[in-house]
Amino acid sequence: MADVVANGVRFHVQQLTPPQGRSAETPAVVFIHGLVMDNLSSFYYTLANPCAAAGADVMLYDLRGHGLSERPPLGYALEDSVDDLVGLLFELGIDGPVHIVGNSYGGTVGLAFAMAYPSRIASLVLVEGHFAVQGWGEEMARTLWGIAFGMELEEARTWVASAGRKMTRMAGKADALINHTSLVEDLLTAIPLPREPLATLACPVLAIYGDESDVIDRARDLASLVPDFTLNILEGCGHSILMEVPDHLQAVLAWWFAGRNGPAPVYQPPARDLVAAHPLAELVAG
């Protein structure tokens, strides 16, 4: 099923079933991507298929306004994102606890979902997840304004036009989302997640962050609050670890879903001069 309507919005959904079939023990894993230049393909290309091949029932979806989902003018607050997830799980008949893997803003959605619906989450994996603290919304909005402003520059327009169909379409979608929906306004009025309930969060949380990431402090903040919290820090990596080191993330997820037996896989950074820019890395902003 590719299109699912929830909360009156059409969402692009992909479900991946394990090749060996489902059983009562098959874990359900939901992947949630980041903001604006991201969509479900970043997880589809990296972690989702290996996760399904290893025996999980996987669901990915494009957030409203992203990828191939509908882009309504309103409804981009964090609470709306959580409602959309709840609506999609209902429409798909997924009523048991799910494991959520969220990249960047997708992690924020997972965290807010875990706090609002503690009985419906089996575990949470934050890949460079944002933690909605005071000022978080303004920070995100500023980043998006930077993208929007950059795209308005003559040089950028010329470059996008010369870069072909793919880049023109991606730039057009980002422009529509930033300038023609309530996304930025909704971020500016974002309410920080309350800190107290995090201390009673029952589900295990795995957090994977680059040590050079601009949100590493959020991970350390969460580590001091959440009881069952595993922090996996990757030396020499920034915010785009999903695209930079997908193999390591695959290994950590396999360890996590297999019951955390033994020590967590440790990331071995390559020699600096061997690190090449990834073709998709620059596309994952949020």
Partner: peptide
């Protein structure tokens, strides 16, 4: 020049 999300849609089809 398929966008990555379009390849996903194609794989779904």
């Amino acid at each position: 020049e398929l966008e990555s999300i379009e390849f996903v849609a194609l794989a779904g089809l």
